[in-house]
Design a binder for these strands. Structure first.
Lengths: 184, 184
DNA sequence: ATTACTATCTTGACACTGTCAACATAAGTT
DNA sequence: AACTTATGTTGACAGTGTCAAGATAGTAAT
């Protein structure tokens, strides 16, 4: 239903009706509409985490290629699941602290994972060592997030640009990376 | 009211009541709630455009500093007017083509302006010349947009990081820029 | 086996929303 | 003076999230 009608169109009543159950039945499983949304977002995070690890565990790729795949994978995941992505990283949940504790427990490690990865990439020379790790990961993630949002909301970019945009971004970030280390 | 209650909390009825007028009065000035939102967003674009030009017309700054100011100005504008920014670049309007023609006429030139600037920066050597201009401006704008959104939605970044994040981003993008040209 | 409890579902009701239709009134134009 | 337009009004409808009170069935405890 999220995929069909979008996050705004998702109504508890219609959802209940579609399930063949009365309007207030969902309230015995979720305190709130918000809690339902948080639960869905939670699943999204787990799914994405699984997805990311699969990319990182590919052994037949160079460091830069792996980063490229990660970047591309992130954008594709967002583009393929626009409504879910909006739920996971959108204001509906995060604005004004509406996120469930459960959701936080899944989301925050996912954020930290990103910082950890950035640190590794810096140490391996893929990303500039001079920059503060936290800032750098905020910026690089910000870039992925921003591109994802532009795509999802249909502003100024569309699906056919994905590959080229990602390549451009990765080039920018890894400018100083010497390809020699690839060969080792 | 947008600033107080946010974009979701803005209701036509409350707005009318606050203005001391009946519920359906607004409908004689705007066809829709959507049209009202578009009109507000339109003002936002004009305001921002004005803001951006003011930054570009500063003559006492080096090229890189000017870019830095632009970047910072964008993020600050978003952080200072979170609800307005959300309206201007959020899914409420753009998702599924709900934007008014009037809004489009103001917004699209604003997008093009960004591309034009990117081209200039490339020619002046501030940004990498090798990259496709459109892709590059999508990526750089994506970065600004993404950071803005993370800030606004309170994910993974907060207001105290603004300056450092912008500096980090500008450093990344202008890596190959020789400072010599600054002195000329 | 009876009792108590808990999980689940139900209908009724409330306040809120955007929006339409029908009607009123005042201002300006012909 | 008559007509048109801009602007306002109340009434009504369908939709929403959510609470309260009651129904039913399955499980655990005595």
């Amino acid at each position: 239903m999220l995929k069909e009608t979008g996050i705004e169109g998702l109504s508890l009543r219609k959802l209940a009706e579609k399930t063949g159950v009365s309007r207030t039945a969902p309230y015995h499983h979720f305190k709130d509409k918000n809690q339902l949304l948080c639960a869905i977002a939670e699943q999204g995070f787990k799914h994405w985490q699984h997805n990311a690890e699969k990319i990182f565990n590919q052994t037949d790729l160079s460091l830069k290629e792996k980063y490229h795949q990660f970047f591309l994978g992130y954008i594709r995941y967002a583009a393929d699941n626009p409504e879910l992505y909006d739920l996971m990283f959108g204001r509906t949940i995060w604005k004004q602290n509406k996120a469930t504790q459960n959701l936080r427990d899944v989301a925050y490690p996912s954020f930290n994972y990103q910082v950890q990865m950035t640190q590794d990439w810096q140490q391996q020379g893929l990303l500039p060592k001079g920059e503060n790790t936290l800032r750098l990961s905020q910026v690089t993630w910000g870039t992925m997030h921003g591109i994802a949002r532009l795509l999802i909301d249909g502003i100024y970019a569309d699906q056919t640009h994905i590959d080229e945009m990602c390549e451009c971004a990765v080039n920018l970030f890894t400018q100083g990376f010497s390809e020699v280390t690839d060969a080792i």
